[in-house]
Amino acid sequence: MKGPTGWVKLGLLVASLAVGVALPYLVDQFLVGIVTLALITGLFAMSIDLLAGYGGLVTLGQAGISAAASYGVAYMSVKAGAGHLAQVGVGLLAGLIVSAVFAVMIMRSSGVYFMMITLAQGMIIWGLSIRLTRITGAENGLPGVDRPEFLSLYWQYYWFVLAVVLICSAMLYVIVRSPFGLALEGLRESESRLLVLGYNTSLQKFYAFMVSGFFATVAGILLVYLNQFISPSSAHLTASALGVLQTILGGVGTLVGPMIGSFIVVYLRNVVSQDFERWPTLMGLLFIVVVLFARRGLVGELSERWRAWLTRRGLAVPLR
């Protein structure tokens, strides 16, 4: 533990874990459902943060990958009638294959070019899902994806999602602190310097995209079992952009920020929008306001304030 910051972080972690585990005893089914959804979209946003926050590659097509995984599961469940192991297997395979194809396409691009290509990629998955009627059921989607027996109740599934998301978060935490994660930050800061140092930046982008795609795939599989339904809108740019909004709202490059951003967005969407009909307008305005006035996000802003407070009290040295 280094200084007060470490203790505060540990305390927050333990407190949120305790609340997280005890949640089904504390609140009703509706709220548990919302928290389950927020955990899943939080994992999705963290997969975006790995690329955007650490690699400096803002992806606008991540929902295409999750949706491919969801469709893999739903197809095996609804149309093929396969067992749950096969469903998850095909879901994983679908997500990873789509990630690999996308990764090959983006590995030589960066910056705005990367954003535009990923946008087109995600929207093409959306296009496929509304046209490929035999597999995807077009606009009607694929309803009736049943969960396994031991996860059928809402609180059972909640604990399962909590466990999976915790494991994935721990993996992401390790990844961003590994040499691979540090090299990824180098990619964000200066690709040309990294090239000169002998890094194969194209290959690095490929790997980063695959790792991020894996977590998006897991999120897609969790989501389809939560909703028990998948439709083309989950692959749309709106879904990808929502993930990016969660990421920048919470704080890019912090991993915990996207999760917090996800809770805020899911809450706004499910609770506030019951009384307010124009959700996309709200979302768009939130986007504009965050981009203009709060680019560091909630966590970035808070940790800055905390550091300043510590410095005033002589408990920490200022950065730089």
């Binding site: 705005v112 952009a241 307008t281 504009i288």
Partner: peptide
Amino acid sequence: MEKPEVLLTIGLTFVLGDL
């Protein structure tokens, strides 16, 4: 600032479409 510019125009698209 390239990336914030792109993100802002996406937000604008949502507002325009919904209005």
